[in-house]
């Protein structure tokens, strides 16, 4: 059941995190294996994006630790953290492209910021990355001129510009038509194999991610409910996991949002 922990790149141990009174994570353990595609599944609102930001060191956990390649992410100074972040890429749901720069300049951005490469080499590198995501033709466009799916691919090109060891994808499939979804799935898988990247995909899109993931964690209510290979997850006995996989409206995850009063009480209160 446990993944092969001999070659773990990211090690999350008994992580707790809360936004004020709202507990997002209540002691979770996750291992992300080097060179594999790890998927983290969960219903919306379970703070999957939060996990990525915690790994990236943007937010601090209440307790517990996150290690990246043996380095405790949250015990680093600001400059050490920045060094660490050069080794990981995060693909935001929106793409997070800089709107005042062209597609070309967006991909060139990390290169210009972190390297002193000559302009001709930056140009070649950027065009190579754009070619890899199939958008070399869009180099001169501005982010508002391209579609959301294209923006995500540009962001992917930008994320791999510095050749990181790991890329984290935040809901990469949300709001994509089947074609651009297929393109993204192919890209993620392809980059993983071609560059030996470690990939982390956070999503609630079950079917597609089970096709490309090597290992899957299912998170809900601040806990890891189940984890294993895609086949193990498909055959999971957990009621919640099967509800989630089959898309049933009601089950362990209630259709109704938690309320302090009953339905009847609420209705009667309005009349009194």
């Amino acid at each position: 059941m446990n993944p092969d922990t001999s070659d773990t790149l990211v090690r999350v141990r008994s992580l707790r995190f809360a936004f004020g009174p709202r507990v997002i994570y209540d002691g979770i353990d996750i291992d992300i294996v080097r060179g594999k595609v790890t998927a983290i599944l969960g219903p919306s609102g379970t703070g999957k994006t939060t996990l990525l930001r915690l790994i990236g060191g943007q937010w601090k956990p209440s307790s517990g630790s996150i290690e990246f390649d043996g380095i405790d992410v949250h015990a680093q100074s600001r400059s050490e953290l920045f060094e660490l972040r050069k080794r990981m890429g995060l693909l935001f749901q929106s793409g997070a492209l800089l709107t005042d720069l062209t597609v070309f300049e967006n991909v060139a951005f990390p290169l210009r910021e972190h390297t002193k490469l000559p302009e001709s080499m930056i140009r070649d590198l950027v065009l190579m990355k754009l070619e890899a995501v199939g958008l070399r033709g869009a180099a001169a466009l501005y982010p508002e001129q391209i579609s959301g799916g294209m923006a995500r691919r540009v962001a992917l090109a930008r994320a791999i510009a510095l050749e990181p060891e790991m890329i984290m994808y935040d809901e990469p499939f949300t709001g994509q038509d089947p074609i651009s979804m297929g393109v993204l799935v192919r890209l993620i898988r392809g980059l993983n194999q071609a560059l030996g990247l470690t990939s982390v995909i956070v999503t609630h899109d079950v079917e597609d991610v089970l096709k490309i993931a090597d290992y899957v964690y299912v998170i809900s209510g601040g806990k890891v409910l189940d984890h294993g290979t895609p086949d193990e997850i498909r055959n999971s006995k957990s009621a919640l996991v099967s509800q989630f996989l089959n898309g049933e409206a009601d089950g362990p995850v209630s259709f109704h949002y938690k309320s302090a009063t009953t339905y009847e009480q609420d209705l009667m209160a309005g009349r009194a």
Binding site: F82, E83, A96, R158
Partner: peptide, 22 residues
């Protein structure tokens, strides 16, 4: 504010670029 709302600042930070400085 819009750069923040559209994750551009967070994105920079994840690219190891300090948005305060940049």
């Amino acid at each position: 504010g819009l750069m923040k709302a559209t994750d551009q600042l967070a994105g920079m930070e994840m690219m190891a670029v300090d948005p305060i400085k940049r």
